[in-house]
Design a protein around this nucleic acid. Structure first.
Lengths: 338, 338
DNA sequence: CTGAAAGCGCTTACAG
DNA sequence: CTGAAAGCGCTTACAG
């Protein structure tokens, strides 16, 4: 393998000069620098990452801890991941992706062995067991998902409270007074998916404040259960004119459920979901929705993480991205009763 | 940070003894070994990965090059990725996930800087521009996807030819004589997705051999285009009794298309797809299908890669996994014409 | 503007 | 059975 020594020899300079030419950390005469650059090109030299990491204590790798809970909707995870890997690369970092069950063990192992400069945690739960370890680690950490204790960490999430309010407001203003909210399954909440009840409570409270009602339900995260759930909800509340869907599987199942019942959105029922634009596109969901902002959250987490890695800022931030509705034409004034 | 020197000092031995105790590469007296282990635990020592990599030229990291073409069906990619990361971890490797557009540049950069011990390439095209670079790299490589030239690389893929034959055979034996095959979009083929025509040609030829006919079509990979495509095909071939679906978006769109037309599988039409079990479960697709074996392919690629990394086998293999049908009750004898 | 040398934290022949 | 020392390929004070 070609080393910095080979380059130095071929260019007729010392290894330190090559190193400085590479880093730009001191002035090198044009003549020498050009010679070095030429040699680097002709020898195809790239510095050894391990050696560099050893010398600088910087790996230029970030650790991405992703949890794939088999009852959550895997496709949605991909957008967060791509947000992270793409932005990391733009900032000069590669991404070590960790998917093991034992996230805590992985975090400990990777942190102690100094394989990465920092961590991004996806799918963070209300009381995430990984957080204490992360706080005690020498590397900084950024989260996607809002835990109860955000101390010492940068946190990014969609503002689910505002999302719940926005969904209700939008329908309320069109005239809807009775709505159904389908949330993620109860076990997602039980496991610490606090965003589920953040959105649900906000929606219910906002409706109550304005003199409307939102019937809130947990729904299965897979077919056919979720389809049956939806039918049951619609049967139970024949007067409901609006459907809020905070559950990707439910959103994906909804077109056929509506079709089966002979309902059309927005003519017969207004539908507003909460999912990513990419998700909507892939499954052709004809429903207006609050965008999950998955890629953006991943990108923001990386940016803030890199800021902590590369500078000595000590403040941490909690950033809740304001919800935005992507209009796909599925909400309108409630149908006039005949 | 705690180093091997700290451990040695606390245990009252030399650094080499600690190193050998860690690696087991030479006999250490029980007494000394136990003392060392105790110190390691109490100091929370984990060897520095960069230093180890520098000394051994082994990173215990594999590079995973994944391409996310925005017109391909992203959710399906996840299964391959998890197969790779999970199996890698079981074998003692972490995974550097690379998603940049410029896969060739990434491969070059990561290979030269010695960040990984080997590469797994996903989504390999017929004439993949990354392969020559991979062959010239000092690290071994394993592919998921069959290129035209497999020289010097380990290759894993579903046997799409056998899959096409199997799909036709299964329907033929039930009595179907006219079938429609919906493939991935033409531009996937144009880009080198050879598996599309491997399956299509095999299906068509097998049908011809047996005196049946398969109408083959490319279909869009997104809604609503794919829904219209499906309707057009069904309109064009009213006599077709079997539908073969080698296109995930089409499979996902099919339930509502069938419902719209008042068709049921298998009563009115037999349907057999090619997608992953996980995909079927997530979207509740009630169609029998040849399993993509995504996770298995990812796992096999890693296993073979690690074999090359850790031993000096020089033979390379091309492994085409035989297709297997997962029965979901969507195929039966063709309906008797009234 | 440039070079010689120390040091990052490991592993592994070499020596006993 | 164990230790002293060289070396992996970089970076960066130190010196000129």
């Amino acid at each position: 393998m070609v080393t910095i020594g080979d380059v130095a020899k071929a260019a007729g300079v010392s290894r330190s000069t090559v190193s400085y030419a590479l880093s730009g950390k001191r002035k090198i005469s044009d003549e020498v620098r050009e010679k070095i650059e030429e040699v680097i090109r002709s020898l195809n030299f790239t510095p050894n990452a391990g050696a560099r990491a050893l010398a600088t204590s910087q790996t230029h790798v970030i650790g991405l801890l992703a949890r794939f809970l088999n009852d959550e909707f895997a496709p949605a995870m991909l957008q967060y991941i791509l947000g992270v890997t793409d932005r990391a690369r733009e900032l000069g970092y590669d991404t070590l992706m960790v998917t093991e069950e034992d996230g805590l063990g992985a975090l400990t192992r990777i942190s102690r062995s100094r394989m990465v400069d920092g961590f991004v945690l996806l799918n963070v739960a209300e009381n995430d067991t990984r957080l204490d370890t992360l706080r005690a680690a020498p590397q900084p950490g950024a989260l996607v998902g809002l835990p109860s204790d955000t101390d010492g960490l940068d946190v990014f999430d969609l503002d689910f409270e505002a999302a719940g309010q926005l969904m209700v407001d939008r329908l309320f203003e069109l005239g809807h007074r009775e709505m159904i909210l389908v949330s993620q399954p109860e076990h997602v909440v039980a496991r610490g998916g606090a965003y589920v009840w953040r959105l649900a409570n906000a929606a219910r409270n906002r409706a109550a404040d304005r003199g409307a009602v939102v019937h809130t339900y947990f729904g299965a995260s897979q077919q056919p259960a979720i389809g049956e759930d939806l039918n049951r909800m619609l049967d139970t509340h024949p007067g409901a004119t609006g459907l809020l869907v905070n559950n990707e599987a439910a959103a994906a199942a909804l077109p056929s459920v509506l079709q089966h019942r002979g309902l059309r959105a927005p003519d017969d029922i207004s539908v507003i979901g909460r999912f990513s634009d990419d998700f909507a596109r892939t499954f052709s969901l004809p429903f207006s929705a609050v965008d999950s902002a998955a890629a953006e959250l991943g990108r923001r987490a990386v940016e803030q993480l890199v800021l902590h890695i590369e500078t000595n800022v000590t403040e941490h931030i909690v950033e809740l991205i304001p919800p935005a509705i992507v209009d796909r034409g599925s909400i309108a004034e409630p149908r006039r009763r005949p």
